[in-house]
């Protein structure tokens, strides 16, 4: 098993899928000659050429639409949006066409379209480069939305997304491209549905996704060593469709739930997971579920303000302690 960085997992998935199927192609800003802002497509231009590793002009909505159109007639595009914030400009093609075409054609047209977006806050990038759009994508019928937290899933989710006949949005993270982790040498596919238990535990379920999985794991370690609280960390991983049964199963075991998200709370992942817990296993709860989330503010530039706006492992520890009356 090799240790790869997150970006290397994405690159390996691209390379394997493009080598396998000549109708798989990549599009985006600076992904070809420049090698990709996060190196996730580096070397592919030389190997597959300009028709399959397409450097686009800065026209997010229309190159997304070109990907959607190509997908509708059998090609398998992987469209990279340089920063998730720019995906707002592509929402028309994503939402009105990619997400709806299969349904509104009565199942006659498939749209095996993949959009990769680096989401989340990095470091002092300001309000227009720090968006977290998961709440938007997961509100759109017809899309699948997945969020890799590890190099292993960065690879495995892209592999599955390319093979799926549904449109899939993959939310990566600007701060995680250099994260290292083990990735099996043999080909594998991470399912596009279902949660993964990252750390089994019996006292409280901590639900997280993408970067917040790491905050939750750090918090769980501290809770165990310093407070004797055995937390179960669940990577939601697939935000749409959410795994209701997987969420409920963990809560039925621990009877307590914390949801950790990098996004603001209103209309977010946390509110949705909390609603599922309420609907599926309310009477299994020993305490009211709690959300740990970003402040509802445009992300500020100043580093202290930025840090204050975004949650961290300490906030998770504090929330669990409070829940246990410690």
């Amino acid at each position: 098993m090799a240790e790869l960085m997150y970006w290397q997992g994405i690159l390996r998935a691209h390379d394997e899928e493009m080598a396998r199927d000549p109708l798989v192609f990549a599009m985006g800003e600076d992904i070809g000659v420049a090698g990709g802002t996060y190196k996730a497509t580096s070397g592919l231009f030389a190997k597959y050429g300009e028709h399959r590793v397409v450097d686009t002009p800065i026209s997010e909505n229309s190159y997304t639409g070109i990907g959607v159109g190509a997908a509708m007639v059998g090609a398998r595009p992987i469209v990279e949006i340089m920063s998730v914030n720019f995906a707002w400009l592509a929402m028309d093609q994503l939402m009105n066409n990619a997400a709806k075409i299969h349904y509104m054609s009565g199942g006659r047209i498939r749209c095996p379209f993949v959009m990769r977006v680096p989401g989340g806050t990095a470091h002092q990038l300001g309000a227009q480069h720090s968006a977290r759009m998961e709440k938007v994508f997961m509100g759109i019928s017809g899309l699948r939305v997945v969020t890799p937290a590890t190099p292993r899933d960065a690879y495995g989710l892209l592999k599955s997304a390319v093979r799926s006949d549904d449109p899939v949005v993959i939310i990566e993270h600007e701060s995680m491209y250099n994260l290292k982790g083990e990735v099996p040498d043999e080909e594998f596919f991470t399912p596009l549905e279902g949660v993964e238990i990252m750390r089994p535990g019996k006292d409280v379920s901590i639900f997280a996704y993408n970067i917040s999985v790491h905050w939750a794991l750090d918090a769980a370690q501290k809770l165990a060593s310093e407070y004797g609280i055995d937390a179960e960390v669940i990577d939601l991983r697939a935000l749409k469709p959410l795994d209701r049964a997987g969420i409920a199963a963990s809560v039925r075991k621990t009877h307590r739930a914390i949801i950790v998200e990098e996004d603001e709370a209103p209309v977010g992942v946390g509110s949705e997971v909390m609603a599922i817990i309420n609907e599926e296993c309310f009477f299994d709860l020993d305490a009211a579920p709690v959300r740990v989330h970003a402040l509802d503010v445009p992300i500020p530039y100043n580093h202290r303000l930025e840090k204050a706006a975004i949650p961290n492992a300490g906030d998770v520890v504090a929330a669990v302690k409070k829940m246990f009356g410690r």
Binding site: H51, I66, G69, A70, M72, Q93
Partner: peptide, 16 residues
């Protein structure tokens, strides 16, 4: 909305 879709069909034709 269909402008880029039409170009996308053409892109797939070109690839094939």
């Amino acid at each position: 909305g269909p402008f880029p879709l039409a170009a996308g069909f053409a892109k797939a034709i070109q690839l094939r």
